[in-house]
């Protein structure tokens, strides 16, 4: 029997803790936020229920879907008039309705995309980038020069900047919605096969496949690292200590992902991989697929006509 040190030999704790005494630990917010972030990251890869529902888009060949929806996405990035953007939004809503996609799944994205794209576009709303009538002056510069630039008397948000920003946010929202319709109504393996059929290089498709497969594994690893740290944390450390821990955790995750990457490569070699990827082809192009491509083409033509 091992000789245990004296401090390790003790009776079971007798203390009964009062559940109502004591302040909640700092870091609970961080833990919850990390968990939610992991869920958000893994969510699109794990939630496949929409692709299994019965709906118009779910029945289609992934090649037809990818062609039609990617065409609409490309065109959306080019639209500038509000009438065309409104018609595009209507097309999106019709597609969502026909596919039976749960609206609550899209609602989170519809809230997040405008927020992030608005953050990106904020500088463009200022008269430093897009000139126009200043609606909201932010600060006065006294009309000086800054290098080669002549600064306006007052820097602020302009009407033209606001409109350009609103268009950018709307276009982003529509593009993301179309991409989500494609992703939610197609199993990833079939989607990647569809991309392959559209001429996307095999190695790129393989990389997408790997990313889709392993992002969840790595997210789970990150969660595990955090939980292990949490289970051994008695008092939260200083900011510098926490920063050091985050850096060490990132390093550990990098080592794990590299090790997993090596193992995956060996597993591929072992099963005959020689650098050229071969995938099962699905020869299943039906009348409905041709009809969907034609409908997507008609929608694009209508958008162009409205755009003028």
């Amino acid at each position: 029997m091992p000789n245990l040190p004296e401090w390790l030999i003790k009776p079971p704790p007798q203390t009964v803790f009062d559940p109502h005494v004591g302040a909640p630990r700092r870091g609970r917010f961080v833990r919850r936020a990390l968990g939610e972030f992991a869920g958000l990251l893994a969510g699109p890869f794990m939630q496949r229920d929409d692709s299994g529902r019965s709906g118009l888009l779910q029945e289609l060949d992934p090649r037809a879907k990818a062609l039609g929806l990617l065409g609409l996405i490309v065109l959306t990035t080019w639209l500038a008039t509000w009438r065309a953007l409104a018609l595009d939004a209507l097309i999106c809503l019709v597609l969502v309705a026909l596919s039976g996609i749960k609206l609550r799944r899209l609602a989170g994205i519809w809230l997040a995309v405008p927020l992030f794209s608005a953050l990106l576009v904020i500088p463009a709303t200022l008269n430093l980038i897009i000139p126009g009538e200043v609606l909201l002056p932010l600060w006065h510069t006294g009309q000086g020069r800054w290098g080669p630039w002549v600064m306006p008397d007052a820097v602020g948000v302009t009407d033209a900047g606001l409109e350009a920003g609103a268009r950018f946010v709307t276009r982003s929202l529509l593009c993301v919605t179309l991409a989500l319709i494609l992703a939610r109504t197609t199993r990833p393996d079939r989607l990647f096969r569809g991309l392959r059929a559209l001429g996307v290089p095999k190695i790129f498709v393989m990389l997408l496949t790997m990313m889709e497969r392993y992002v969840v594994v790595l997210v789970r690893s990150a969660e595990e690292i955090h939980l292990v740290k949490l289970s051994r944390t008695i008092t939260p450390g200083s900011l510098r200590q926490e920063q050091a821990w985050v850096a060490a955790g990132a390093g550990s995750l990098f080592r794990r992902s590299r090790s997993l990457g090596n193992a995956v490569y060996l597993a591929m070699l072992s099963r005959g991989f020689t650098g050229d990827v071969h995938l099962l082809e699905e020869a299943r192009f039906r009348l409905a697929d041709a009809a969907f491509i034609a409908a997507a083409g008609a929608a694009c033509a209508a958008l162009l006509a409205v755009e003028g």
């Binding site: 199993r187 990833p188 393996d189 990647f192 496949t209 790997m210 889709e212 497969r213 392993y214 594994v217 997993l260 193992a263 995956v264 060996l266 597993a267 591929m268």
Partner: peptide, 8 residues
């Protein structure tokens, strides 16, 4: 997890 690298 290393062996199963395909999506389905």
């Amino acid at each position: 997890d290393a062996q199963l690298f395909c999506p389905s």
